[in-house]
Structure formats: C-alpha cells, structure tokens
Design a protein around this nucleic acid. Structure first.
Lengths: 339, 339
DNA sequence: CTGTTAGCGCCTTCAT
DNA sequence: ATGAAGGCGCTAACAG
C-alpha cells in the first residue's frame, strides 16, 4: 500500500501541493523547506533536508515559479519578440537560441508582434508578462516601447531600433557584402541589379547602403533596384526583369529566399547551376543553400557567436554600459555555384 | 511641466508602480482600481473609472500578471513542447498556432525537450512554469509526465503519446496515404520503396503501417524500406539505392525533406521534374514544395483546421470527455509533378 | 457602488 | 540551524 499516485496515469492533483503541505509532511517549518529546496546552499541539517526532499517527492510537489518570482523579482522568463516566425530567417539560429536560454535556466516566451497595431494592443491591454529580458527581432517595436511592454530594462535589440539605454547585437553586414561584391568584381562584374526587402526596416536600409558603397568602391554600376519583401514569391516576380532585355552581370538579393525565387524563375540561364547570363548572390546563408537545387552564394554570420553574445547579455546584464555601441558580429561571404 | 516620463527614452522605472500607487493617485481603493482595469465589466462609477485610467496612464502602470495569476489560478500561459524547432515541420503551422493562442489572450512558452534526459531534468529541477495548457509535439514525453511537469491537467498531445486523461489531435494519415498509393496504383506502380524516419516515434510507426496496408490493398509490393531520420541529408543518402541497380516504380518518403534529398540525388532521373525511372511521393505538404525546384507530390492536412481544434481545447477544456478518442484531422493527397 | 479584509505561494528578515 | 512573521502585487469575498 502506498499513497503515491500512479505516475503513469495520474492527473495533476486538483489542488497542487504547496510548500505548506511539504512542511507539514516533513514536520518542519516552511522556511526549512524553502532552504532545503533552494539551489544555492543554505544552512539546513542533513536530516531535515532529507525529510523535506522525501516529502516533496512523495507529494509530487513542484514549486510555483510565479509565486517565487513575486518575492525574488526574477521570473526566469525571456521574451523573444518576432514579427513572423520566419523572421528567424534560419531555424538553426532560433533552435540554438532556445537551447542557450534554457541552458541558463530560463524559458522562452515567444511573442509574435507583426504590426504596429499589435504593439499598441499589447501596450494598451497590458497583457504581457514581466520578463527578465526581451530579445527583439520584430521591426515594429523600438527599445523604449519594449521596455514598457515587459517592465524590463534588459531588452536586447536585433532589429536595429536600439537606443542608448538598451544593448544591441547586430551583424556587421558591410564586411560580408564587401567580400561578395569584391568576388563579383574580380570575376568581371560591372553592372549589377539589387533585389531588396521592405525598405521600412532599418536593417534593410543599412544593407542597401552597404551594397551601394561596395558597388562604388569596385566601380560597379547599380543598374536597377527591384523591391521585394524577402519572400521566394517576390524574388520570383522580380526575376522577370532579368529574363527579358539586357541583363546585368550580377544580381544581388538581400535574402536567400528571394534569390531562390530568382534562380527558379531563371533556371534556363543557370544550366547545371552555373551562371550564364548573370551571377547570383543571396543573403542569410540559409541551410537551404546546402541543398543541391539552390547552391546560392550567400552572406552570413556565425550563428553560434551571435547567440553567445545575446546569451551573455541575458546572463550578465551589467556588462552593458549604457550608450555603448552595439555588439557586432562579422558576416562573411560564402561562395557557391551561382557566383 | 509634467510628471510624465519621456516615452521615447524612458527606462522602465527602477521600481515599477503597483496598484497601490495607482489607487493613491486616483484617490480610490485598490479594489476599485482592480475593477476599473478589469477586462470584464465590473461595477465602478464612471467618474472613478476615469480617474483610475488616467492615474494608471500617468504612472505607466502595468499590472503584474504573475501576482494576478497567484489569485486567479490562471496564468494565461500555454506551453508548446517540441523536440527540435524543426518538429513544427512547417513553419506555417507554428505561425498560425502562435497567432491563434495570442488571439485568445494567452502567450506561448516554448520549450525544447529534445531527449528523455531533458524531460527528466525538467522534472527533477522543477524549473517549469505552471501553465494553463501544454501542447506537446516532442516524442520524448508522455501525457502523464507532461501533466506533472506543468502542473496542468490540460495537455494536448500531438505526438501520439496521449492517454485516457488527455485530449489529442492527430492527423488521420491513413486517408492521405491511401489516396497517394491509389494514385500510384492507377499509374501502374507495382513495386514500391519506402524511406522512413525514426521508427521510435509512434506517429512514424502508424505511418509506416498505413503505407503497408495501402500497398497491400493495391497489390503493390514493398520491395525495400530504407531508414532515414526525416532530414534532407538522410533522403540524399538513401537515394543511392535507387541510382544503381533496378529501381522500384515509386518511392514514398515519410517526410518531404527526405523526398527532396532523394529528388536531388536522382535529378538525372527527373528531367524537367518529370519522373523517368520512378515516381516520387513525399509527406507533410511543406510550403517548400511550392518552389519550382521541388514539385513533390505530397500528403498533408488542413493546418487551419488543425490549429482550430487545438485552440478550441485550450479555450474550452471542458468539451473534452476523458477517454474519448483523439480528434482527427483528415489528410489528403496533393498531386504534383513528381508523381 | 465602494472600501476592508483575507489570502494566493513563496522568500526573507529577524529572533531564537 | 530553525521557526515566526511580514510582505511581494493582486483579486475575491465580504460588509457597508
């Protein structure tokens, strides 16, 4: 006979056991339970600690993290704010991030804030949990707004909309873009086209500017700029410009997805994936570019390093000195068949 | 002169205002503040409600959802438990799910539990927030364990490991598989090969069984079964079997990613994406199959419907009658060039 | 309609 | 080393 519920089929108890229950069972005070269960070593006699642990186990006790944070002021929650899921342009990045955050004992609250309206809504309705930190990719929120949303001073901005009070981690895209354009120049490219994303994003504006600088440095003429939205479909549409009429020597896209669209629309111009009329360069270095069908030369950064920087800021917020410049992660050119 | 902090650069106040502060400023009791700020209509005089709203605004007050849930017993948090991020085989599904959950006023806590060890760890360390509901994709957790992890009776299992106490939503794969195999049979396929994922997953076992049943029904011989892991790379590797020696009439893969790998490895056998030596069928109906390079016939379900079922269970947990069978979402065959 | 009074579950002094 | 007591921010009864 045992009082232990059958682990295999047990419902969660209608009313979950609290610290009081454990204390009662172990015949100690709540304070002792608190100490015995604490991660950090606290003075408790071995005997009582043992009783507490056993009692907790027997009851299936799990501390209520919410109640806990009410006094500790730390919720062990990190908000990740995105626009769409696809913002995390490569799932690899997101998977790593999630792993890293969990590894430091925190959990990820994923928020999709795909428009300014949504930001306002969150702010107005006040339905956002307080968190230890917020990591922001969404274009639609600036640092001050996010601080208000989550009642947290620790917001790390990855969307370029940081201010003096909040740290930021941003890829140094100029490097990789410079390398890619240099590669093109070395191969004789003189006339280029650029397929861009929404110019509303600060990141995108900077990206375009970097391309212009690099083109100028290598005496490459930017003959046409086509506006897309980062998607495959928009790249596919933009490609019509290169199929008819004189094409440029190289087409640069500010996302791999658009480059994939261009490539598919222009397959006849890429026999065996080798460029014939023009060379093709993407951006993001998606793992998809390792698939045979899309061997697109691209620009990317070290994801592990990127995540490491973010994680460090979450773990040691104090290393950030207000007003200091964003942490930058260098990008590099990854040559592939289409170049 | 104003006491309002500059919204554009404001830090979150070192010590955030509480309900008490608002009550004091508005010269009412905390209870009135609580009512005035409540979503559901509660008795408050228009005058006082107004003062409360103004005071809250002036202070930049945001209710502490944690403290709130301490009394209401509802945290407005829904855990989504995955194995890897890639479990959400299509981002579309996940994006919808996130949107749907936010639409009902809850937020998503994303947990990656990629191994049995991790499950044990979560259980042992007790570092998992209590949530209103948990939605489980990860193979590594059964319903009872998840109920314990999150102190919640409402866990919706999508991994096939449900029990009588927990609802489940599962695609009815037999339908789509039947349709796909029928399509192949109608085109004269007699000898088939199957490329599978990890057989440890219950879902995968059922999937394979369905294929066997369908093959038998259409007098198709399953000549070889190759073990992959759902990934592109594993499909690519498996394909070597079809390049040398006699190939089957059709290759069925239990994931689109593997089918993409097979397709790439066998490109010569698919001039213009038209099958020559064998037909190719995938699974999941990824949006990637809309890309020109991978026109893979596939099997999929209505994602909107799937998400709708899940959301309904979250919103109205009581509709679930313990012991009732899983909610099933029919799958269908989506013909494309490779078939 | 309004204010007062109890807690929710936990951690942290503070005595002991 | 231990227990008692207070309080974290909020909502839910209660009386008025």
């Amino acid at each position: 006979m045992t009082d232990l519920p059958d682990e295999k089929t047990a419902k969660a108890p209608a009313i979950p056991p609290t610290m009081d229950d454990v204390a009662a069972l172990a015949k100690v005070s709540r304070a002792v339970v608190s100490r015995a269960l604490s991660a950090s070593p606290r003075p408790v006699s071995a005997d009582k600690r043992d009783r507490v642990l056993k009692a907790a186990e027997a009851l299936g006790y799990r501390p209520n993290l919410l109640a806990q944070s009410l006094t500790t002021k730390r919720v062990n929650l990190v908000a990740v704010v995105v626009n769409h899921i696809h913002d995390l342009s490569d799932l690899d990045l997101f998977d790593r991030l999630l792993g890293a955050i969990q590894a430091v004992g925190k959990q990820v609250l994923l928020l999709k804030v795909g428009s300014v309206d949504r930001v306002e809504e969150f702010l107005r309705d006040g339905v956002a949990h307080h968190v230890d930190a917020a990591l922001v990719w969404s274009d639609f929120a600036d640092a001050a707004t996010v601080r208000r949303m989550f009642r947290s001073d620790l917001v790390v901005m990855m969307n370029g909309r940081h201010d003096a009070l909040s740290p930021a981690v941003v890829p140094d895209e100029a490097v990789g873009i410079g390398e890619a354009v240099a590669d093109a120049a070395a191969k004789g490219v003189r006339r280029a086209a650029l397929v861009t994303g929404r110019a509303s994003s600060l990141i995108e504006q900077a990206r375009i500017a970097s391309f212009r600088v690099a083109f100028a440095a290598h005496a490459i003429t930017l003959e046409q700029t086509l506006q897309g939205d980062y998607s495959y479909a928009s790249g596919h549409r933009a490609a019509s410009a290169f199929l008819s009429g004189p094409s440029p020597d190289a087409v640069f896209c500010t996302s791999d997805a658009m480059a994939m669209g261009v490539l598919d629309a222009c397959r006849p111009l890429f026999p065996n994936n080798r460029p014939q009329r023009f060379r093709l360069y993407g951006f993001d270095n998606l793992s998809l570019t390792d698939y045979d069908a899309y061997p697109i030369a691209s620009i990317g950064f070290d994801k592990a390093l990127f995540v490491e920087h973010i994680t460090r800021l979450v773990v040691e917020p104090d290393v950030f000195v207000p007003g200091s410049p964003p942490v930058s992660v260098p990008t590099h050119f990854f040559p592939r068949a289409t170049a």
